[in-house]
Structures are given as C-alpha cells and as structure tokens.
Design a protein around this nucleic acid. Structure first.
Lengths: 193, 193
DNA sequence: TGCACTTGTGTACAGTTGTTTACTAATGTG
DNA sequence: CACATTAGTAAACAACTGTACACAAGTGCA
C-alpha cells in the first residue's frame, strides 16, 4: 500500500498503476501481491480506509485546537494545509479518486467527505454558531464548505510544498471562500428561493 | 480523439489508456496513431482545446438565454446540466484531468476554468449586478462559483443521466450553493477579515 | 498527368503485463 | 518441539504493450 502511495505521490495516477509496478516499488516479487490483495481495486479500497483515518486525525486536531470562534476559519484552513503537506501522497490519492475509474473507490472517498461535512455541522451546532439555520440549511452550508476546501486541495497539490508564496496565496483564498460562505449562511433565509 | 473520449465515457480513466487500445477503438492500426499525435499526452492536450470550445458554447448559450436576473441561477445551472448531459464524455475527461497525471493537461483545464470565471465576472459587471464589490472580491466570488459548479460536475457524472430524481437533486443543490454564495457576496464587506 | 503530401497498412521486435503453479523461509501458538 | 499459518520466491506463459520501418492508397495542386 505504501509503495502504491509513493508512486502516486510521484505524480503517477492510481488508475495507471500495475501490479508489477507496485511490487517492484515495494521491493517484492510480483506474486507476493496476491498474498494481500485480489487486484488493484482492492488495494485502492484499503487505501480509502486508511485515508479515513488520516481525515479523522485532522478533524480531531481541529476540534482540540480551535479555541476562539473568531479565528475559526484561519485556524481550520491552517490545520488542513499542514495535514495535506504532511500526508501529501494520501491527498493525491484522494483528489484522484474523486474522478477515478473504480466506482467503489470513488464512492468511498465521497462518503468520507459526507461524513466530514456532517461532523462539521454537528460541531457548529454544538458551538451554537449557527442557531438561525435549519438542519437542512446547515448541512448544505457544511457540504459547500467541505467541497470548497476539497477543491483547494487540488490547488495545493499543484504547487510545490516549498513554494511558500503560492501556499500562502492558497491559504488566503481558501479562507476567504469560507468567510464568504459563512457570510452567506449568516444572512440566509430558508425558502429564499 | 473521439475514440479516446468514447473510452473515457465508458468509465475508463484517461491516464490508463494505451495507444493500441485507442487505435483499436478507432478501428485503425496502431501505427496510424503517430500520424496525428506524438503520445497520449499530446492527444490529451488536443482534447483540452476541444473542451475549451465546448465550454465556450455553453457560456454563449448562457449569455443569450438568460433574460430575467431573478432566475439567473436556476437557468444557469439548467444550461450547465444540459450541456454536461449532451457532452458527457468531454466532462468526464475534464473531471479526470483536474487531478490527472499529465501536468500540462491539468494546467490546461485549470486555465479554462479561470477563463470561465473571469468571463463570468465581466458579465456580472456588465449587468451591474455586483456594483458594491471590488474587482478582487467579484473575481473571488466567481472563482468560488465556478469551483462549486465544477464539483457538482463530479456528482452529475456519478449518476445515470436517466435518473431524473438524482439529477433533480443535484440541480437543486447546486442552485442553492450558488444562491448561498451570492447572498454572501451581497453582504460581503471588503477587508472583512 | 505527374508530383508532393497526408493518412493508413503490414510486419516485426523487444519489453512488459497479469496470473498460475509449486516450492521455501519465517512466524507464533499449542 | 511440532505444526499450521503467513509471507515471500522462482520459473513459466500467453497476451499485450510502444515503437520502428518500408510500403500503398488517397488527396489536391501544378
């Protein structure tokens, strides 16, 4: 699994990886692959599970470290970026999987994102930061937040992690996106359509 | 090119396509490939150019058919969805390319999206729909709009085009996203950070 | 009519792929 | 210690891959 991840981190697309290629990277004979996985899709699914762990760690760090509500978005984006940089290959895999060729992997990643969004909605409810929103509207808002951040992910993966200037731009832009969304949520009226 | 697109439309990932496979689908001998392209990346780049045309057609239809400002978002989303359904394979290619393995294709698609966002900003300026926003803030808003719609694209490609119920859900959700963003923009104050 | 150019064909080759089968080394539990 | 399980190996195979080369049919222009 980490061999596959390494290759993905080097810019290869998961869909184009072969069994022999992965085992070669792992320093192991091709037949060994079958001791652990039935095929590449299977390996992909197990990577999705591990990705889930990475995302949960990120979420926990967010919950523990965000103290003042007024800095909520800056800090969240900061945590997000630092986790992406620390697990670059995993997030490459995630970004690829959103439009990947295995339907199962795609659905797995999508469901991780839904989970993330619903946890975010719960947190906001608990912090009483969105009391004027109906449950449905809060869910929608959080969904949009998660999507926007996920899209920033592709920006972030497109620049070198050492390019501080570009990373800073992405950080600022993502933060502004979130602020814009929450300004919208603050003035949102149900059935405004 | 249309052979490659057909394969992508059938669920294959562009990065995993081979020359022989594409020429087989095209009903042509493998060596013919080299008459037109140097390699698969080259083919991908030419597909990006064609994708640009598809997007421009969509934009034009938007400009011609949107009459009342109050239905602007419903109609825009409607046009978007109908173009996606009419050019499904192209949009598959686009969604894949955002995290593809060819840096050049990736950059090409990204730049098409930037172009789209800046045209959108110009239109809104021209229609005097965003006069309280600075240029930078309007650009940001349009960027977020385009990203949100692009993300909905992956939703749309994940369901069958005949599944009217799901398509309708996506349409509604996307429209609400845009409304939320524009409510945010309407109440946005520069330097609100 | 002849000529340059474009597109497609046929054959060939060395390298790579996924997968099977039979065998071996390492592991931890009773 | 013996045994069952797990993880890795070696050799083999047919199928497929990208690419090279020389050649043929179709095109539009002089």
């Amino acid at each position: 699994m980490s061999a596959a991840l390494t290759l993905v981190g080097k810019g290869r697309h998961f869909a184009s990886l072969g069994i022999r290629e992965v085992t070669r990277q792992a320093g192991v004979v091709p037949t060994s692959f079958y001791r652990h996985f039935r095929n590449m899709d299977d390996l992909g699914l197990q990577l999705v599970d591990e990705l889930g762990l990475v995302l949960r760690r990120m979420m926990r760090e967010g919950r523990n470290n965000i103290l003042q509500a007024d800095k909520l978005m800056e800090e969240s984006v900061g945590i997000f970026i630092s986790h992406v940089q620390a697990n670059r290959s995993f997030f490459f895999f995630m970004a690829q999987g959103l439009a990947g060729e295995s339907r199962a992997v795609q659905e797995g990643i999508r469901s991780e994102m839904r989970f993330f969004a619903s946890e975010l909605a719960n947190d906001l409810r608990r912090m009483k930061l969105a009391e004027h929103l109906s449950d449905g509207d809060l869910d929608m808002t959080c969904d949009l937040v998660v999507r926007s951040v996920a899209f920033s992910l592709t920006d972030l993966l497109g620049v070198s992690p050492d390019d501080d200037y570009q990373v800073e731009q992405i950080r600022k832009r993502t933060t502004r996106f979130l602020q814009l969304i929450f300004v919208g949520a603050a003035h949102w009226k149900s059935e405004s359509a």
